[in-house]
Simulated assay, not measured.
Amino acid sequence: MKASPLLVGLSLLVLSGITPLLRGAEEKIPDAPVADQDNDFKLLASESLGKVRHDQKAEDLIRAYGEPKSKGELEMLDAIGEWVQEWNYPDLGIVVKMSSEKKDGPQRVLIAIAGEACKLSSARKIKIGSTRAEVEKAYGEVQEKVPGDGPVKPGDPEPEPEEGTEGQNSFVAGSVYGGLIFTFKDGKVVEMFLGAAAE
């Protein structure tokens, strides 16, 4: 007796569904963290460093702060498939990376990095020199939560800091895929990064 094509097809579907389950019993791969993109992009759209905003048009940035003191070379960034150029505003203590789809196309703010000389504040009034407690008060409800992270168990050794980074750590508002990242040294903000630190 010949099996009908429909029966053969259904059997294959059932087997193909069971095989990964059986294989999964042997090799359990943990789920990667999933970004809450809607909330990340809401935060990113509402945030700024002074008058610098993510995705801001070049002409609006120039209207706010004038031409940059210097511009880097245009480079194709393969990870995002866009042309990127660094604009330096040393008087503001900020570096802005601009991007465009075409080499000679209109540019927009991709990321902005405020260094130790910057006096500009975030939209929630955090600036270089703000304390970690002030950052947590302003951004605590939008801090990135990574699955599996939790309190360190009593008795666990403290991780060794990388050379030259003693006393430094960071706080991510939104996510590394779109948000505001604060870097601390000795409990105070020494850098603010607006944009996506990961693709």
Rank of each mutant, 00 (worst) to 15 (best):
M1W: 11
A3G: 11
A3C: 13
L7R: 06
V8M: 06
G9H: 06
L10I: 04
L10R: 00
S11W: 10
L12H: 10
L13W: 11
V14R: 07
V14D: 02
L15E: 02
I18P: 05
I18H: 03
P20V: 01
L22M: 01
L22N: 02
G24T: 12
A25S: 13
A25G: 14
A25N: 14
A25P: 11
E27Q: 15
E27F: 14
E27K: 15
K28I: 10
I29T: 14
P33W: 01
P33M: 06
A35W: 07
D40G: 07
L43H: 07
L44S: 04
L44N: 06
S46F: 04
L49K: 01
K51Q: 15
K51N: 15
V52K: 00
D55W: 13
Q56F: 00
A58R: 13
E59G: 09
D60V: 01
A64M: 00
G66D: 11
E67F: 13
P68F: 04
P68W: 08
K71T: 15
E75R: 14
E75Q: 14
D78S: 14
A79P: 07
W83N: 04
E86H: 08
D91V: 12
I94Q: 01
I94A: 08
V95D: 11
V96D: 03
V96W: 00
K97T: 15
S99T: 14
S99C: 14
S100L: 08
E101I: 12
K102H: 11
D104R: 05
P106A: 09
Q107V: 13
R108Y: 12
R108C: 12
L110S: 06
A112W: 02
A112C: 07
A114F: 09
A114C: 09
E116S: 10
E116W: 12
E116L: 11
C118L: 01
C118V: 03
S122A: 06
A123R: 03
K127C: 09
I128N: 03
I128R: 00
S130Y: 03
S130V: 07
V135Y: 00
K137F: 05
K137G: 08
A138Q: 02
Y139D: 02
V146A: 01
P147V: 07
G148T: 05
G150V: 08
P151H: 07
P151A: 01
V152G: 10
V152E: 12
P154K: 13
P154T: 10
D156Y: 06
P157V: 02
P159D: 00
P159A: 01
E160W: 10
E162A: 14
E162L: 14
E163W: 01
T165R: 12
T165L: 09
G167M: 05
G167H: 07
Q168G: 02
Q168I: 07
A173V: 00
G174V: 05
G174I: 02
V176C: 08
V176E: 03
Y177R: 04
G178C: 07
G179L: 00
G179P: 02
L180D: 02
V189H: 04
V190N: 05
E191F: 01
E191N: 07
E191G: 06
M192V: 04
A198Y: 12
A198L: 15
A198V: 14
E199L: 14
